[in-house]
């Protein structure tokens, strides 16, 4: 299954640096259920209680450095994905979150997000790695993925990758 939408368009919700996975989805919810839709209702609740009401399907989370630091919980990218967020853009990602997002098929874009403001409409071309800020025609270049990781992204995540290749492609 190829990633369906190569070009995403949505409105930015801006967050700061070091947004940890406890903030993305609190431990008091994540242990209870495997239902990511249920978890999605509590996305970012502890630092932004109104976020769920404000956001619309296809919107984008835009953050600073080290997005997704803290615990290894895969429920964090899952909650973002099932909340209907199109992609997360950040200056840098914490390493476990980075892997988890790729593995579950949540688009992530590593780029300089400083000039993006909340409410900006963005268009992201996942294939070329370009982010356009519509209001001022600013074009940001995303950090390209190594080809090994691109193979996982292309098929929609690690589950699909294992189903397709029966294991790791190299070695």
């Amino acid at each position: 299954m190829k990633q369906k939408k190569k070009v995403l368009r949505g409105y930015a919700h801006k967050f700061g640096d070091d947004i940890n996975t406890d903030y993305i989805i609190s431990g008091r919810y994540k242990f209870k259920t495997l239902d990511s839709r249920e978890l999605a209702k509590h996305l970012l609740e502890d630092i932004d209680p109104d976020f769920n009401k404000r956001k619309a399907s296809g919107d984008l989370i835009v953050a600073g450095e080290n997005f997704g630091c803290g615990s290894s919980r895969e429920q964090a990218p899952l909650a973002i994905k099932y909340a209907g967020i199109g992609a997360v853009l950040a200056k840098s990602f914490a390493r476990i979150f980075y892997r988890n997002a790729i593995n579950i098929g949540l688009p992530i874009v590593q780029t300089n997000t400083e000039k993006i403001e909340s409410g900006d409409e963005l268009e992201i071309d996942l294939a070329s790695g370009e982010v356009h800020v519509i209001k001022n025609n600013l074009c940001l270049k995303a950090e390209p993925f190594p080809s090994f990781i691109l193979d996982i992204i292309e098929v929609g995540g690690l589950i699909e990758y294992f189903k397709k290749y029966g294991g790791w492609k190299i070695r």
Binding site: G70, S72, N100, N103, L158, I159, F162, G167
Partner: peptide, 29 residues
Amino acid sequence: ADSHTCTYGALNVFSTGVGSTDLAAAMAS
């Protein structure tokens, strides 16, 4: 599949935390 897996570095081990799907791939392969 826990971020504090780095604890065993104290025993000269390279150990690191991963998420659930990585762990599934690790258990399988």
